[in-house]
């Protein structure tokens, strides 16, 4: 049985690799790349429209002055997929899990381990929902975009342009920006909640020395007043920088994800155009990897910023 199956699969392997190789050669020769190099006309079935890259998302229809874009539809699809899947998984929770429940538990446990590994058991429960949501959202956005119906089914406009119904949601800058904003809001919220407004403000601006300087000035001591004022203004400047670094996080989050995903999309488009068959497969694999890495980076950085925001609080708890 074992040997028979083995011999059979070897045969299948050889046949299929020959088949794939043939397809690759056909794609190479008759695709735009081959036809340009060898000066032959490609068969019409393999002639593709030139890839055209549109950075802003395209509108599909309008409701009361609001444009529903293809990326928005794609993000809805992501939400529907995620929620339906996990609803089905956790509908009947049992102590001894079935397969679907096992899937949900595996996902949650993996992410929880990731969060607990960085933040410790106590703070993990605070940080976990946001980090997990960001990870799943970005990951499924990226992976769904690799499905065939993305960018292919669409509406042909009157002026000859083609608008796909689904477009990778991560390639719309509004989506990374929205996640970055949420991440920023949550990080600041955690910081505020764990320290209180004044003390959280104090982590940015240290007014102590400025106050000392002003009091010494009022008492007429010139030297401590000058040094206090100097240090106070330096602290103010450092605080401003700190505030900017928090704000810059939004921008870096946004453009990291947007850039990576858009570049991946364009890469796939170009490869598909140049060599229509087979050669795109490794690039799809690459995109799987990049989607995972980007999701991990987005979630991981949010986690780290969250830990930093909660850190003074945790230290305090440890000392008391």
């Amino acid at each position: 049985m074992q040997r028979m199956g083995c011999g059979c699969s070897t045969k299948i392997l050889i046949l299929s690799s020959i088949f794939l190789l043939t397809l690759l050669v056909i794609g190479l020769i008759s695709g735009p790349l081959g036809s340009a190099l060898l000066n032959i006309e490609a068969p019409s079935i393999l002639q593709l429209p030139k890839p055209h890259v549109e950075l802003p998302p395209e509108g599909i229809f309008h409701i009361a002055g609001f444009t529903i874009t293809n990326t928005l539809i794609a993000s809805w699809l992501t939400i529907i997929v995620l929620v339906t899947l996990f609803y089905a998984c956790t509908r009947k929770m049992k102590l001894i899990p079935g397969r679907l429940q096992g899937l949900a538990e595996m996902v949650v446990e993996m992410l929880l381990n990731f969060v607990e590994g960085a933040a410790g058991k106590k703070q993990a429960r605070t940080l976990f929902p946001v980090v997990a949501t960001i990870f799943l959202y970005v990951l499924i956005n990226a992976y769904l975009a690799l499905l065939p119906f993305y960018g292919t089914i669409g509406i042909a406009e009157n002026d000859g342009t083609f608008v796909p119904l689904f477009r990778a949601a991560n390639t719309d800058i509004n989506l990374p920006l929205s996640i970055a904003l949420m991440s920023f809001i949550f990080v600041e919220y955690w910081g505020l909640r764990s320290l209180g407004f004044l003390r959280y403000l104090n982590t940015f601006f240290n007014f102590g020395q400025l106050r000392d300087g002003i009091t010494s000035l009022a008492k007429g001591k010139i030297r401590p007043a000058i040094s206090g004022l100097m240090l106070g203004f330096i602290n103010l400047f450092v605080g401003t920088l700190e505030v900017f670094s928090h704000l810059i996080r939004i921008v870096s989050f946004t453009f990291r994800l947007f850039g990576n995903m858009t570049a991946g999309e364009i890469l796939l488009l170009v490869v598909c155009f140049l060599v229509p068959l087979i050669a795109t497969i490794p690039f799809y694999g690459l995109e799987l990897l990049i989607g995972f890495i980007q999701a991990l980076i987005f979630a991981g950085l949010t986690l780290v910023f969250g830990i930093i925001a909660l850190a003074p609080h945790a230290e305090e708890e440890q000392t008391t």
């Binding site: 993000s75 929620v83 956790t90 929770m93 949900a104 929902p129 929205s178």
Partner: peptide
């Protein structure tokens, strides 16, 4: 998109994190 994220966050909280964490 922000609303989308909030919706996803809430729904996943209800359907994924809460029951699974409780079960774990």
């Amino acid at each position: 998109f922000v609303i989308n994220f909030v919706i996803l966050f809430t729904l996943l909280g209800i359907f994924l994190y809460k029951p699974v964490l409780k079960m774990l």
